[in-house]
Design a binder for these strands. Sequence first.
DNA 1: AATGAATGAGCCTTCATTCAT
DNA 2: CATGAATGAAGGCTCATTCAT
Lengths: 209, 209, 209, 209
Amino acid sequence: MQARLQRQQAQSDARRAGVLDAARAVFEQLGIEGASIREIARQAGYTPGAIYSYFESKEAIYGALLAESLERLNASVDAAGHTALAPAEQLDAKASAWFGFYAANPRDLDLGFYLVQGMRPRGLTAELNDQLNDRLHDALQPCEVALQAMGLGAQEALRENTALFAHGVGLLLLQHTGRIRMFGQDASLLFENYLITLVERLQSGHRPD
Amino acid sequence: MQARLQRQQAQSDARRAGVLDAARAVFEQLGIEGASIREIARQAGYTPGAIYSYFESKEAIYGALLAESLERLNASVDAAGHTALAPAEQLDAKASAWFGFYAANPRDLDLGFYLVQGMRPRGLTAELNDQLNDRLHDALQPCEVALQAMGLGAQEALRENTALFAHGVGLLLLQHTGRIRMFGQDASLLFENYLITLVERLQSGHRPD
Amino acid sequence: MQARLQRQQAQSDARRAGVLDAARAVFEQLGIEGASIREIARQAGYTPGAIYSYFESKEAIYGALLAESLERLNASVDAAGHTALAPAEQLDAKASAWFGFYAANPRDLDLGFYLVQGMRPRGLTAELNDQLNDRLHDALQPCEVALQAMGLGAQEALRENTALFAHGVGLLLLQHTGRIRMFGQDASLLFENYLITLVERLQSGHRPD
Amino acid sequence: MQARLQRQQAQSDARRAGVLDAARAVFEQLGIEGASIREIARQAGYTPGAIYSYFESKEAIYGALLAESLERLNASVDAAGHTALAPAEQLDAKASAWFGFYAANPRDLDLGFYLVQGMRPRGLTAELNDQLNDRLHDALQPCEVALQAMGLGAQEALRENTALFAHGVGLLLLQHTGRIRMFGQDASLLFENYLITLVERLQSGHRPD
DNA sequence: AATGAATGAGCCTTCATTCAT
DNA sequence: CATGAATGAAGGCTCATTCAT
């Protein structure tokens, strides 16, 4: 009995995952704005109505995809570095982890950028939006901890972490849109440079107040 | 005869500009995705069909708007600083000009980001895309010149300018999406910090090789 | 064996009644047009498919609800008045019973009017329709009997009863749709007036021929 | 020039009327709830989107149809009777006019009943609803005037007019739904009877207070 | 140059019902 | 008896674009 329920649940989960896979593919092919329930259903091998057995709405699909992406991001960050590392090395490891995740997975970047799509949070319920924000914060937190371990106060660490995040985001955006090749540069190298310079600056004691 | 043609041309240009004004207003009110030809026509005082006398398609309107936005960006940058300034001050003036332009005009930022919407260039012909890219480059060039005047080689100057642009873009994105308030920071202050640190670094001779 | 069958039957009946209760609740909350099998199932604690174990179709649910409503109507009418009453008083008691039932239970009125929705009988089988009509007749019959007891012939009694029914139906409709408040009147008072006038007229011998 | 505009306007009006005709036909065939924009468009010889050139929404179509129906109702009432008539005869003429209009035009009755559909005003904007209500009042007003001319006070006239309206509405409903044949009666005869009795009662001075 | 009616494709979503399990 | 996934049809509506006038 229990076994049957489990089997059903597993089957249901697998089918839901199938829809999610189709959605990911459609988003990739048509862009997130261009994706439609019809097309997602088609690629998942369903009629449109069937999608609503698994997701309440189009936005819910996007939300599920983004949530899962953020889980993978956090997994990457968690796996990077270790406590035995010197703070500067830990900073480098953690920052490189989140940056590298998005550099290597442009679709996850699409997903993330869409969250702020049209430069406006939208579509998701406030609650889900907050959850997703929290998970993003989680991925960035280790860098802030490392910055504090390097001697910065809470305020300074927050400021540097924000700047670091912005720098990475800008580079990813440029790279992803092809603008950075235009500049004849490599985003990952530039990010590494930023990190090196940052560590140097912090260790030399030259800090803006 | 010639005079009549000129008059007609001027009239046509003026009406085209009117459509563009309406389009800008609609984009502002409804966002770029939410804008429709119908609504643009309505606000311009036309019926939908008339718009096609001035623009080939909806994307062409967007292209024209973006082109004009980039002209204003360049005008802002051109007006900033002057040749008598020390290179470091000139850098600050020019960089603050482009950053400030977008910080102060979020709709122009929308326009620019929409170009890379879904992280994929779209809608514009390759030719127009190149033209627009060139104008963006023009706006960033003065910073690169200043960096060279500070003693950097062409390669180094390009690299620093790219990093500078990425940093600014990242901050603008975070601010515009509301994420930066989340971090309790102010984008303009962080950008200014970046500039100060950059100048310090360059003048102290600590350059990553 | 027999006992088990009986137990099963009883159980089945109880569950069917549960579905009906849920349906009534849903009709009340969402209106008859707004009700869906999904929602009825949800409120009954079932999944949609299960409903079809108890009812052949959505219209069958409506039919069962209407049948039960008519039973309650008849119960109300049966409980009103008594044989010891003078015919005029009996008429008043019985007519007030059916009118009062619908005035006090607007959902039952909805149900009844839905039967003639769009002014066209629909959804029900002819057979069921006839059954329901018969039960409506049953509820109105006591008035006709009283009218005859007051001295009217069969034809006259039928005519007066029909007029009486129409009058009540019109008032209920006006009241239920809010139109009667528009006229600044109270439906029950007007119905009572009609009854008084009717009795007066019949007893004074002024009868239209 | 002017002529062209007029021709265009006339053409547009004609096409709008064509849509309305199709809508009327569809409402007749499928009932008002069953009617769809798609089907109305099909019968009007258009694609669904074209309908929206003429009407803002499905409800707007219904509203236009109902408005036009009420105009015809008022025209009928206005044409009935004349000032030279004795008040009692004027009452009979005006009341028979509105009743006769609906008895002869069951589709208009459908339209009117739908307004109170599901026994609930719905779909129409409050403003339009009020307009339509006013036109209904207009059609009933002459009866009230006649009642006052017969010596009734304002309150009494209103009460009698409300009762008269309810009686007619009830009879129309019974007839239209086929229930009245069930009673073996004729709605128009019964309405005429009600009027005769009413006049008699008022003239004999037997008035409920 | 401008109109505005019309198209055709598309959108998300809802629904009663069926059926393998 | 009950599940719940799936269907297939339909729903109102929007939109960029075209084209006869």
